[in-house]
Design a protein around this nucleic acid. Sequence first.
DNA 1: CTGAAAGCGCTTACAG
DNA 2: CTGAAAGCGCTTACAG
Lengths: 335, 335
Amino acid sequence: MKGKVTSFDVAQRAGVSQSAVSRVFSGASASKATQDKVRSAADALGYRPNRLARGLITGRSKIIGLVVAYLDNQFYPDALERLSNVLKEQGYHILIFTTKGRGEEVKQTFDQLMDYQVDGIIAASVGISDELTNRCAAAGIPLVLFNRGQRGGALAQVTSDNLQGAAKIASFLVKGGHRRIGHISGWMGSITGQDRAQGFASGLQAAGSELVHQIDGMYRRDTAAEAAETLVSEHGCDAIFVGNDHMAFAVMDHLRGAMKISVPNDVSIVGYDDVSMAAWGAYELTTLRQPVNRMVHATVDTLLAMIEDADASADQITIDGPLVVRTSAKVPKEN
Amino acid sequence: MKGKVTSFDVAQRAGVSQSAVSRVFSGASASKATQDKVRSAADALGYRPNRLARGLITGRSKIIGLVVAYLDNQFYPDALERLSNVLKEQGYHILIFTTKGRGEEVKQTFDQLMDYQVDGIIAASVGISDELTNRCAAAGIPLVLFNRGQRGGALAQVTSDNLQGAAKIASFLVKGGHRRIGHISGWMGSITGQDRAQGFASGLQAAGSELVHQIDGMYRRDTAAEAAETLVSEHGCDAIFVGNDHMAFAVMDHLRGAMKISVPNDVSIVGYDDVSMAAWGAYELTTLRQPVNRMVHATVDTLLAMIEDADASADQITIDGPLVVRTSAKVPKEN
DNA sequence: CTGAAAGCGCTTACAG
DNA sequence: CTGAAAGCGCTTACAG
């Protein structure tokens, strides 16, 4: 522990009190002369304030807990990177927790999060029980849900407009002349899965069509691939809306590979998210773009507002995204 | 700040001293009776020790800083998730920093890392200057390089055996009957890029062949795609070893898409990493597997050893991985 | 503006 | 085994 220089060391070298040192680093008032003395002493010594000590006394750790479930879905690493950058600009950093589980594991995760005295929590697509919600509230720790809503609660959340987005896809598919349209949903235990499914079904009806069949893809590649086979072989689908891009890739692989089916000539596929891979040559997936950047900014804005003002309202923000048309689905004819 | 219960609150309720409370939670000796009293009081109050306060006094934050550059290469989110899990079992958590930059930005990142009093740092494929290395050493913060070596220094690092791995690929390609073999390297400013290139060239020679041409792919998709076009069109390559899977996907997309070239009938492609997508139907990429799990365990073991014992040697660990044969490259004939 | 002092929530010698 | 006390490195009223 050689390198440990404290504010006392700096004070001594600068010939001022330790309080003075603290003041210049915490941005409190100090005369120009003091500032200069302190800064040059600090530079000479390589001093930097200890955030833990500061956090202990201010009650602000400047740490945001991020809990995320699906790092294999490229949407999340992408969001993570942006979240990290936007937060960094505001002086916050991310303590990351990955958890596939639900229930007990999530609970432990929250315990640990709180042990570190995080200033706020972002939960990306993980289900939060009411108990956990209450515990955060009791501890005064703001929580915002990223890309996954929760019914009932007054939880802060930012999602894309899943209902509308799915409806856009429905309309696009119907106009594209598809007759037998199926849906492989996201996990129906998630609001996201439910909303996209519902928006899609309503959209189909609004366009004068109907949903032939729907299977829960559980956000899993293998489940989705199997579902695609069932939809095509048993239900004769000529178009499938898949609940997210991650599953859509698996569907395309399975259709083209094992089943020798041409996409989009035999079956059209549409996804949801517009992750970077959707634009790759192997897939060229038509999909609904989730505006990650705007979602990230909205999330950070909401969270920081709640941190700075405990009475800030828990916003529920819905962000609209465009349909990105590529080649994985037949396109409506111009006329 | 309602929910803030401290060890004093617990002590009071349990009818013991605050020291006693601390002892049972820090695992120091305490009688069974005291333990019981404290635990039940703590449970009733929902008490959990404040890690920041504990860290301040023990000098152990239980935070590991992870700095990572390429979250869009699936290798890293995957490694991140495993790192997080393995570390969690040991009571550590990850404060994550993303940085594309080199130089000044990395320096700032390290400043911030140290502000949080991290117990150790894992740098995943980011270049660390000697100055930074020295600063970590001075501060007594162990640093281990993950998946990227550094020449000269005595830095702890864990990488796969890039030299040998690339040599295996060379041998495989020559045996596969390829005549004009090219290489799109990883960024040649990185040791990883250099080693794979060198191992490949030597391997080719050892197998009685030679490298037709090599282009730096910079770990970028667009650069790699362009390089592939040059290698095929101008140098007549019938096989290309691409420095990592992430670029290899771009190469396959470009060859098959824009250039209407069949992989592997016209050109064989081999990658490096074996990220999960390599197994996907759209690519079925033949590639050298980096044993992420073993690399992660080795990284954590080394880092924790250095944290626990400041005199622990800075291990330089190299882990061997197998060639995973799929369909993106012609396979040597049995005989 | 500035310094002395209290205190954030803990751990850990030190006596008993 | 247990409690009183000092101290980790800071911030922030409080006097001057």
